[in-house]
Amino acid sequence: MTDMAPPPVFTHLLAMTDHRATFEHACLTDRRREHGYCTDDMARVLVVATREPDTPGVLNGLAGKALTFLNEAQSFDGACRNRMTCGGHWTDQPSTDDHWGRTVWGLGTAAAQSDVSMVRRLAVIQFDRAAEARSPHPRAMAFAAIGAAELLTFDPGHPTALKLLTDYVAALPEPTDDAEWPWPEPRLTYANAVLAEAMIAAGVALDDEALRRRGLNLLEWLLNYETADGHLSPTPAGGRGPGDTRPGFDQQPIEVASLADACARAATVDPRPLWPEGIRSAAAWFQGDNDLGLAMWDPETGGGFDGLHADGVNLNQGAESTLAVIATLQQARRFSPVSQ
């Protein structure tokens, strides 16, 4: 596994984007207009666009589109719509499913990390509206908690962010005493590492050492559980539970990106080398250090492939997979030996 990951490439993401937003799906490299856009992806777009250092103008434009989309997605009570047609019509009603949590995550990240003052101001305004809502879904609340923790790095006393984090912590399940399966769910499902990352982020923001440590311990267990023969072997789309046959397919890039983001957050509060090593393993997974030894991205365009199957790679390059590659390589760059 090489220490040096390539830089993120935005060419395919920009090609997937029109005047309104980024299309959700692709057939190989061609955007599928008939499937439209989604809030989930535009929140991710806002994250990667605003945390890119020395942001070029084209990415500032992308962040602006994401902010406009997320603003239109929100209702007055903070809940969000998720799906829009290519003609600009919403097809669902506002809810607080995962796309709401990702919206809060994106807005908090933009407020804390954008180098454009107008983006920061608009992100805070939208955050204050969205973060008044609450979700019954653990991952939605975890994404929102990460966004709140991000905002608190920019404005440590922000009341809406503090209240969201406090409510998130109050709703967490009690830790399990099962050393073999400490995970707070009976099976791993999707974007698993976000549950641990949110605990770390909230623990730091609220100065709760026990919660911070719980998140680090869960993430360490997950990273070990998702590693086989020296490479990542992430939870497949069907989930993974105790005793499941491994490796499992269809593996999704979102799992790898979630691990990279969580390891990056852990690395800021815990000096152990396993976290940068986890990030490098995530980047290496896209480069072919995986269960089939096959590349999961196009290094020329930055397009991410949609899944690793038992019989090969799903070569469609949708927005979620492409954003997962970009996010992972951003973290790998942050924690590469040269950058430290």
Rank of each mutant, 00 (worst) to 15 (best):
D177W: 02
L329T: 06
A49N: 02
V119M: 13
R333S: 10
N314C: 11
D18M: 03
H89S: 07
D244N: 13
S95G: 12
A79L: 10
V204H: 09
G304V: 05
T68F: 12
W183S: 08
D40Y: 08
A324N: 05
D311G: 07
P184H: 03
L294W: 10
H231Y: 10
A201Y: 01
S258K: 00
A264R: 02
A142H: 00
F69L: 10
D178W: 09
M4I: 13
A191Q: 02
A257S: 14
L294P: 03
E52V: 12
F10E: 01
C38Q: 08
R134P: 00
R213C: 02
L151I: 04
L222M: 14
P253H: 15
P8D: 05
T2Y: 03
Y225M: 06
R187G: 01
E150C: 07
E132T: 13
Q74W: 02
D208L: 04
A283R: 03
R102S: 08
G288Q: 09
M42R: 05
D92F: 04
E197S: 08
H35L: 10
G78E: 13
A140S: 15
D178K: 02
D54H: 06
W100E: 05
V313A: 08
R120V: 02
P53S: 13
T11R: 12
R102C: 06
E320C: 04
T328L: 05
L206R: 11
L195I: 08
M141L: 12
L292Q: 11
P242T: 00
D155Y: 09
E34D: 14
L151S: 08
L164S: 11
L67M: 09
L211H: 09
